[in-house]
Amino acid sequence: MLTVRQVSRRYGETVALEGLSLEVPADTYMSLLGASGSGKTTLLRLIAGFEEPDAGQIALDGTRLDGKPPHQRDIGFVFQNFALFPHLSVAQNVAFGLRYRAANPLTDNEEIRARSEAALELVGLKGFGHRGIGAISGGQRQRVALARTLVCEPRIVLLDEPLGALDANLRARMCDELKAIRERLGVSFLHVTGSETEALTMGDRVAVLSGGRIVQADAPERLFAEPANAQAARHLNAWNIFDAGLCAGGGAGQLGVRFDQIDISAPGQAPGAHLRLPARFLAGEFNGPTALSFFRAADGSLLQVTDHLSQPRLPDLVEGQDYDLHFAPQTARQFPGAAR
């Protein structure tokens, strides 16, 4: 189990992480969701040892990691840009760790070859060993980077936006494969991403990083359905968050309502039991299976409503016209504090 406790990291005046705590249980696929610049990569670099925290502790299975140089931490790091060794072949890249690590390197060439080949086979690159790094595609490089890390049998694998450099099709396929590979090896993965879909798809658990700390860590279904606070909800890209005062009887603080749980009616036509707020229809956006409609509320905040093509429930909307948005009170989540 990886434990990060009260870790802070500053770059001059900029605070990247502020008292962040996180636990990655053993044998878990954990995804870490955060906007760009939220300090996701910084956290991984602190765990891997490329940088040291200003305060706090990092421990793996009870042994303290901070203060140890990276090559003694036994942690696997898959870089966003893959960081393959450009002058070595695929097989030599994969064998690098086995052959040249400071702690008990392998010397038996036959064993190194066998283990490298097994790792390449695991990521679906059997027979690619002799190729040069320049002679394989982006997706294959990603797999080589993964094989190179996994062959050393690290105690935890950190993946820094590993699918960011791949195209959409390949990304979907790698998602499934990463999960399968992890399950076969039984090692924990900590996968950093800025995409909420990727985080929810991949993770057995999803942690949301915002403002330099983890604002929620939960199972993906629970995180999606019941975000604990406004920051977590905002990262899911599925929740409208607005000042509760906009709705008559909405109470204080902020309300969060999912895009797909808001209905629309002409002003004054909403069912009595529902909470309602008036808003002006701005524009619609069609993106395949779903259609998005954008509304502007009285205080200027932007609201989105999702409609599914197969089960349309929205009336025909006219741009610039006022409507009542309404929702069942139990679908809304109440968050403390004022709207941003």
Binding site: A48, G49, F50, P69, P70, H71, Q72, D74, I75, G76, F77, F79, N81, A83, L84, F85, P86, H87, F96, G97, Y100, R101, A102, A103, R148, T149, C152
Partner: peptide, 27 residues
Amino acid sequence: IDPSVIEAARDLGASFGTIFRRIILPL
């Protein structure tokens, strides 16, 4: 030389001397 290539070598367990001989010098 991409700094992350050197970091990758460290992460794979290589000491600075090894990284110099196997990565920096050839490159």
